[in-house]
Design a protein around this nucleic acid. Structure first.
Lengths: 212, 212
DNA sequence: ACAAAAAAGTTGCATTTGCAACAGATTAAA
DNA sequence: TTTAATCTGTTGCAAATGCAACTTTTTTGT
């Protein structure tokens, strides 16, 4: 049984029917392979069955930006901005299995008018809404004007999610810098200042928020 | 007849039924009034019938960020990030009329199972997808590390939309700085450098992209 | 268990940016 | 139509940031 946002609340039989009707296919990827890009698998939605993946963009300058992280059950793809001359792609962070579903099949009801298609569409709405929410979080962070404020906003975001003042950065500090869209060295320096000022305490990727 | 993304492709009769069934109400706002915020009209979707509105956030520091602009037919609200200690709200930029629809009514089919409810749901998906697209554009811009690159990315975004190398900034330069999340003075300075370097030519809010 | 690769942690220095504080131009209001 | 308010355009200066170039530590692959 698949355990993912897109097909939740479906019975096994319903899922099997949809699997055929929607022309769904599962593909395995090795670490560092490209799962999806402007040219590869465009117009499809990817569902992570196992493993981890990252949405990454490279600038014309070669600047790397980490746009999102996907884990088991997460859904990605379908909607990208086709702007920017940069390359945007989803990369396998570990070996992973991905289920591909055509976006058009999801949102356009076919003549059969299967009742469980409604469920899928409602799930898709939830996925889109969640993505908007996540992007809003990201925008909140990026609109902060200083490195310090970006870091603090990010840590507070994590803290809210885990309802704890002790948070764990879910990826490397190198990636964190790319996620916050700042220079890694400048970020490390600011982390030190934050520690010096007694605002945070860190040990590896564990960060404890002291003030507030 | 309403002309908006949310209820497009509906007949007048269908719309009238939905208007009652969904408990929709139209409200007029004077310029600078708050249309929607964390506390006011949360959980509802606003549709601009006439006038213009802006999504704005104020930081704990008082830093203003312009998050989005809405014109006639645009849909806003329903999904905000509840993070950040800042105040987020939709403000009337001019006098305007707003139609409020409860988000739950849109996405949850009722027992009557009206066929035209499908249309509304499909419209909602399009709206969410479009919003994701717009947010991606914004993130593209914000992840640029320099003022210069932010400006150029923004101008190129406008240029793509209008398929022209001559673009018109749709709001004041003061607002543009808030939109790009940079200091206005620094932005004006960079605009001057861009002109000096022969990369752009400007006259008022008209910007002509010379290179590429 | 070892070698190689990646990440973490530092620092000096040049550049960019934000901030404050203006004057002039334009727009809105009385 | 005059006044007030907002927006545009500048500048000096201090502070923040990015960049390059390292060393040390940790992780990964064989």
């Amino acid at each position: 049984m698949v355990n993912c946002d897109l097909f939740k609340q479906l019975t096994e039989q319903e899922f099997q029917k949809i699997y055929k009707c929607f022309n769904i296919r599962n593909i395995f990827f090795k670490k560092d392979q490209t799962i999806l890009s402007n040219t590869k698998n465009a117009g499809t939605v990817g569902v992570v069955i196992s493993g981890d993946a990252q949405l990454i963009r490279f600038d014309y300058k070669g600047t790397r930006t980490l746009l999102a992280e996907y884990g088991e059950g997460d859904t990605f793809g379908a909607i990208f901005s086709n702007l920017s001359n940069g390359e945007i792609s989803v990369q396998a962070k570990t070996d992973c299995e991905i289920m591909f579903v055509d976006y058009d099949h999801i949102i356009n009801r076919c003549k059969k008018n299967c009742p469980y298609h409604n469920t899928v569409i409602e799930n898709m709405i939830d996925i889109l809404a969640k993505r908007i929410y996540t992007q809003n979080e990201r925008i909140e962070i990026l609109t902060k004007r200083s490195t310090r404020d970006k870091l603090l906003e990010y840590f507070h975001t994590l803290a809210k999610k885990s309802s704890s003042k002790t948070v764990y950065v879910p990826f490397t500090y190198t990636d964190l810098a790319d996620y916050l869209s700042i220079d890694r060295a400048a970020m490390m320096r600011e982390l030190k200042y934050l520690k010096d000022d007694g605002i945070i305490y860190t040990k590896g990727r564990m960060v404890k928020l002291i003030t507030m």
